[in-house]
Computed example of a mutant assay.
Amino acid sequence: MDANAGNDYEPPANWGTLKPGQAVQVKEAGHADGTGIIDNMTPDGAVVWVWITGTSPRRMFLAGDPVAILPEQETPAAF
């Protein structure tokens, strides 16, 4: 396995618009949709930490993860 595999990911386009403190909708394959608050993110937007409402503490998402993190007002009807 290539030790550098996965390092070529670019953050999803919508992650670049996210800001700490922003309310978001989290749509993750195989999980119920959730809402949360952006806690922090790396300067390049490749890693985002979200406080998920009503579940586990803060979660970390990587740009290559099968997840959509959308500002609440931009949530599509289906994912």
Rank of each mutant, 00 (worst) to 15 (best):
G21C: 06
V50A: 00
Q73T: 09
E72M: 14
V24E: 04
D44Y: 12
Q73P: 06
W51C: 05
A5S: 07
A5M: 10
L62D: 05
H31Q: 14
A32V: 10
I52K: 11
V24T: 09
G34W: 01
N14D: 12
L62K: 11
M41C: 03
I69R: 02
A5D: 08
G30Q: 11
G16A: 08
T75V: 12
D65E: 06
A23I: 09
G16Q: 11
R58V: 09
P11W: 00
D65N: 09
P20S: 04
P66L: 11
F61D: 02
A29C: 12
P57N: 13
A32T: 12
Q22F: 09
P76I: 07
G54Q: 10
D8A: 05
D2F: 04
L62H: 12
T75R: 12
E74M: 13
E72I: 14
P43S: 10
T35M: 14
R59Y: 01
R58L: 06
N14L: 07
A78F: 05
V50P: 00
A68S: 13
W51F: 11
L70Y: 07
S56L: 10
R58N: 06
E28Y: 05
T55S: 04
V67R: 06
R59T: 08
K19C: 04
N4P: 00
Q22R: 14
D33W: 08
R59F: 01
P57K: 13
T17Y: 04
W15Y: 05
A46Q: 14
A63T: 06
E10P: 00
Q25F: 05
P20F: 03
T55V: 03
P12W: 02
N7H: 04
Q22W: 08
E74D: 14
L62E: 09
G16T: 07
A78N: 09
G34Y: 01
H31A: 11
W51H: 13
N40A: 15
G21H: 10
P43W: 03
N40L: 11
G6A: 01
M1W: 07
A78I: 12
Q73V: 06
I38R: 07
T53R: 15
A32R: 12
Q73R: 10
I37F: 03
A3I: 03
I37R: 14
P57H: 09
V24F: 05
A32D: 15
A5G: 05
K19P: 00
E72V: 13
P20T: 02
D33S: 13
V67M: 04
R58K: 11
N7Y: 03
I52N: 05
T55K: 05
L62N: 10
T35Q: 15
P11H: 01
